[in-house]
Design a protein around this nucleic acid. Structure first.
Length: 271
DNA sequence: CACCACCCCTGGACGC
DNA sequence: TGCGTCCAGGGGTGGT
């Protein structure tokens, strides 16, 4: 479920608990969700957390000695701090913190996982190097260049993490609606001004979602187990057959790039 | 390259 | 209450 705002919400809510904390030990309940060293060393045991970094939908826990673990939440993953002693199902990795409490990686569907690296440059080159610019920091020029190179539907292109990192099915629909761009418009038919609008609206919507603690549709929770509130501000996602908030036309649902897509047939016109 | 079907896996909603 | 079906925010692969 988590897209950029949900991952950033997890990062922000975990920061005060984790920065400076030592990972005393780690319990690995499912090693097969780990890529790389699925042992105590790979999973940062003994290290002191120096930084939590995010790129797109991925999070990295970095220790002062340079090791890092990249966390990808997939559809159903969560990374949560909690008091010890309340284990639940699907908790694959649990770290014990010297400051008290535990850090838990849980993922029922197991579409997410952990990737271990000896150092940050390895993470950046081997994993994050495949990603486009982070959606909160991309420029209109970067977006325009990437979209010019493909004739795919703009929605499919924006979901491609190599084009821009962080947008998922919910926020792409919200952004395209706010820009009045039809989701099936060929990406290379968008001019610079439209790309500028998409870049600006992306940042605006994502930042507002972060301020609202993300969107909870089913089971997203932040680093403390609290649900998000931005689902109340969705204008198209999940609103198929309901009236458009601006023109009252009936919102349509269709499939684009294999994903359910909701848009306003009156407001969103093809380039 | 673009698109598609299909796979990974669990669980919630809904119909009977 | 149970059971079957469909659906879901994330990815990837191999075939056409």
């Amino acid at each position: 479920m988590p897209e950029l705002p949900e991952v950033e919400t997890v990062r922000l809510t975990l920061l005060p608990r984790l920065i400076g904390a030592q990972l005393k030990s780690v319990a690995i309940h499912r090693a097969d969700i780990v890529t790389g060293r699925a042992d105590a060393t790979g999973l940062l045991a003994g290290g002191r957390i120096a930084e939590l970094r995010r790129h797109g939908k991925q999070l990295a826990i970095m220790t002062a000695d340079g090791r890092c673990v990249c966390v990808h939440l997939g559809m159903s993953g969560s990374l949560q701090w909690r008091e010890p002693g309340t284990a639940a199902k699907h908790e694959h990795v649990v770290w014990q913190l010297d400051a008290g409490g535990e850090l838990v990686f849980r993922d029922p569907r197991r579409f997410g996982g952990l990737w271990t690296f000896d150092n940050l440059p390895s993470l950046l080159s081997m994993r994050w190097g495949e990603l486009g610019p982070d959606a909160l920091h991309m420029t209109a020029g970067q977006l325009h260049d990437a979209l010019q190179r493909t004739s795919r539907a703009v929605k499919a292109a924006l979901l491609d993490q190599a084009v821009v990192a962080g947008l998922g099915n919910i926020y792409v629909d919200e952004v395209l609606f706010r820009c009045r761009v039809h989701p099936e418009t060929p990406a290379n038919r968008l001019d610079l001004a439209t790309c500028k609008a998409i870049a600006q609206q992306s940042k605006r919507v994502l930042q507002r979602a972060v301020r609202a603690g993300g969107s909870t549709l089913r089971d997203f929770v932040d680093g403390h187990g609290t649900e998000g509130r931005f689902q109340n501000s969705h204008q198209v996602y999940g609103r198929a057959t309901l009236p458009c908030v601006t023109c009252r036309a009936t919102l349509m649902a269709t499939q684009v790039g294999g994903r359910t897509t909701v848009y306003c047939p009156a407001c969103q016109v093809r380039g």
